[in-house]
Design a protein around this nucleic acid. Sequence first.
RNA 1: GGUCCGGUAGCUCAGCUGGAUAGAGCAACAGCCUUCUAAGCUGUAGGCCAUUGGUUCGAAUCCAAUCCGGAUCACCA
Length: 597
Amino acid sequence: MSALIQALKTAGAAAVTALFNTEWKSEDILINQTKPEFEGDYTLVTFAIIKVARLKPEEAGQKLGEYLVAHNSDLVTGFNVIKGFLNLHINEKWWQQFILNNYNNTTYGIKAPNHTKVMVEYSSPNTNKPLHFGHMRNIYLGYAVSEILKANGYDVIKANLVNDRGVHICKSMIAWQMFGNGATPASTGMKGDHLVGDYYVKFNNAYKQEVETLVAGGMTKEEAEKEAPIMKATQEMLRKWEAGDPEVRELWSTMNGWVYEGFFKTYARLGVDFDKMYYESNTYLLGKTLVEEGLRKGVLFQKEDGSVWIDLTADGLDEKLLLRGDGTSVYITQDLGTAVLKYNDFKLNQSVYVIGDEQNYHMKVLKLILQKMGEPCADGIYHLSYGMVELPTGRMKSREGTVVDADDMLDEMVALAKEESEKAGKANSFEAEEQNALFDIIGMGALKFYLLRVDPKKKMIFNPEESIDLHGFTATSVQYTHARIRSVLNNVLGGAAFNTEGLTLSLPLEKLEKELLLHLEQYPMILESAGAELNPAHLCNYAYDLAKLFNTFYGAHKVAAAENEEKKNLRIMLCQMTAMTLKNSMKMLGISVPERM
RNA sequence: GGUCCGGUAGCUCAGCUGGAUAGAGCAACAGCCUUCUAAGCUGUAGGCCAUUGGUUCGAAUCCAAUCCGGAUCACCA
């Protein structure tokens, strides 16, 4: 909550209670920022109050306004009433205090630790192909949410559960054995994840061909898909892997090693990291003991063939299988086990899973089962569900070669940043080293912002033909505004520290100055709601709005050549606070802002 | 078919715990660089907030129904 809004609610509630002989709570006071076409800063909406007061809206507003000015003059100095809207003027002394308290507060909006442990699991890739554009939404979301939760005082553990075993992994391995001729990242100069990904593609091609041949020989498609030699070999390899065959395990760890090397290069470029890695090869057998326990407790039941189920029909869902008749586990079984493992590893209060919305049902079932089994980890589980990133032609499909590769995308963004810099006449302004670092900051920022500015739960469409814009509602615009402010401050202060001792500020405030202040004061509230809703898009909107407001202010008022010294001081502090808030809010998104650009 | 999610300007999206005349960006058009960074600013144009009904002093926002689009409902992961 914004401190100012909170103060107004408290004062408003006290006023209603005193004036109209009724108990009124501060949370029942509705405060909105006053619309620009009316006079005032914040508006108290009185419609709910007039029912109790038994007055006309204008009279109730008038009485409330008078009361507030009389009893809370430190906060409210004036008002006007239009129908049920009581428009309040905030005491400029309040703003003066706000500025002096916060102009140099680098942790503005950041909360003290609340000792709540929350794990954020994100990325969680398969090790048979490189990361693509769709993964990037997941990765940026997970990282941003982690940062936002940290700023809200949570103790965050960033986790990555790697899907490093299974048929799909064996497919790449088989293809490499068959067609690889011993190729390695070193011998080919390829990034390991891309090399392995290529063999995954080679598998699919070879498989398709074998199936076609078999079908031509008179087999049905279904039979052919089972009988294709390369598929049989893959299944045999999976059996050997599970039996711990040293040769298969050796190849497996070698190829996975290549992939990890590639992944971590990409993660580094994306600017993300993890506190804890989980590997499915270590966790895929978990959950069986849990199932046994569930059977004992009577939460689960066994069918004649020995398979174990849970009945969720009472919750509007189906019966769900947890263990096959032969005693092997299914996907959800290991997820149950892993949920408990995570909980025990860190004594978690909450566990956030950043996973696409195609798994909504799965996650719902997972949580429900754990709840029914009485597992303490159950209630803290939260599925941060996000929509697919689609191309204008539909979903990305690796089989059709329509995936946008993550590494390619990053290269393209840096190239775009360079191109746009040249277009704007900014290239070659700095040393080459700074210039290149800048292209990186701009390119990466634009991409992150683009993927984070949309509400996670909405699916989004990315058109590679129209490259990501660096104008308008973008990180670039925010970055530029930050650099612009730094430049202004440099000009005014010349690198010297700003001394606020004995300073008085110029009052009254200009309209645009006040709008900036109103917005700055709301930052903690935005950070809080982004955390509560696990939605980084709020911060994208906030940062861009703030930048835009500043640019409007910048166009209308001078800092260096302000009307007088007091005005100049005020504006210097406004600049400082705006730059700081832009920087902080972008940091929450994993985006850095340059000192100049 | 059941469940869940979405439908707001030509396009991409805000706004959704009910409040004043629904906002940005892109694209289009017209302006603004001898004065702090023009990757910016100002203005014009663009809307039956999918449809219909309901609740309310008041609905893009809540409820119901309908229509479109998507996801999901495996002894796959």
